[in-house]
């Protein structure tokens, strides 16, 4: 039998999903998306996977909502696309189609899930007894940075290339001018909207605490919940907070954003190259220096993720001329 907590939590997820998809105003669906992030974080906790809850709270609720709210505030009523108004001819047609096929698909999926005789994963034994030679105790960090390090490498490359893509949509394709490679992202010096004095005061007070929290999450990752992605998101949140409260980060960002963004992936690949050099397969680390390799890669990966997420926020605003 399922407990009443699960029923309420499940219905809450459905209700907030409805709030997030159905309303017609952009600000309301963004707020709904923020609430969905929080409710889903609680669901992850209910299914007692703490790392995923941390990641969802930091990345899903925190950073994504920062981007979405900025987007919704910048252009509240969608120009031109006639976005949300129901099609003039048959306003009830689209919801009807949506409801019909949505309902049937959900029933089919639920039926299959209900009847499938599930199998426990075959790798649990393998993970436990090969854990010592990953150099870390926490199983999730072990999987992320040793067993399936290849997935994590490709996925941090995805974040780096997404940052390269949004930089390419800036003025000068992200370069100050074709000759130099200095970062010319227009936003580093672009003015941010005026903010009452309470926020800069609080931001300056909180920034060291957030940095400390980020670093703690990173180093705790090897023994308990935490890791590169959660700490990267917290550090990026600290940068966004400073940026919104007019702290001048322009000079440092213009110089350091690009190398830090790239550093994580480059070091990961070079560390992976150590395997073939010693006659082992790719991305394999000897048990004796495995911990050092994993920690080194994780620190630079955290910096890369923080830089990547900060670039997403930085380049969100249109520099003039790139209309």
């Amino acid at each position: 039998m399922i407990s009443s907590l699960d029923i309420t939590l499940g219905l809450a997820v459905l209700a907030v999903t409805g709030l997030c998809l159905i309303p017609r105003s952009r600000l309301v669906i963004t707020m709904g998306f923020l609430a969905l992030g929080i409710v889903v974080t609680m669901v992850w906790l209910r299914l007692d996977s703490l790392d995923v809850a941390l990641a969802e709270a930091a990345i899903g609720t925190g950073l994504l909502s920062a981007l979405m709210v900025w987007l919704a505030v910048r252009s509240p009523e969608p120009p031109g696309a006639g976005g949300m108004q129901p099609s003039p001819r048959l306003p009830w047609l689209r919801p009807l189609i949506g409801l019909a096929c949505g309902g049937t698909l959900a029933v089919v999926a639920a039926a299959v899930w209900f009847r499938v005789d599930q199998q426990l994963p075959a790798w649990q034994a393998g993970v436990e007894d090969q854990m010592p030679d990953t150099g870390v105790e926490h199983p999730i960090t072990g999987v992320l940075l040793a067993f399936r390090a290849y997935d994590t490498l490709l996925e941090s490359a995805i974040l780096m290339l997404t940052a390269a893509a949004v930089l390419a949509l800036c003025r000068g394709g992200g370069l100050s001018d074709p000759g130099t490679h200095r970062l010319g992202v227009h936003q580093t010096s672009a003015p941010m909207p005026p903010v009452p004095s309470a926020l800069p005061w609080a931001a300056r007070l909180l920034a060291p605490a957030l940095m400390l929290l980020g670093l703690w999450l990173l180093f705790a990752g090897s023994a308990e919940s935490g890791g590169a992605f959660q700490s990267g998101a917290v550090l990026a949140a600290a940068f966004i907070l400073l940026r919104t409260s007019h702290v001048s980060l322009g000079a440092a960002t213009a110089h350091w954003l690009r190398p830090v963004l790239v550093g994580g992936v480059v070091v990961f690949i070079l560390a992976g190259l150590a395997g073939p050099v010693l006659g082992l397969p790719w991305l394999s680390w000897q048990p004796e220096w495995a911990f050092a390799a994993v920690l080194g890669v994780e620190v630079l990966l955290t910096a890369g993720i923080a830089a990547g997420l900060y670039t997403l926020f930085l380049t969100l605003e249109n520099p003039e001329g790139v209309r």
Partner: peptide, 17 residues
């Protein structure tokens, strides 16, 4: 408490501006 008071102060400030 700290978070709530700072954000309330900021919203109040913006509303005044």
């Amino acid at each position: 408490l700290a978070g709530a008071s700072v954000s309330a102060h900021v919203i109040g400030g913006l509303e005044a501006d």
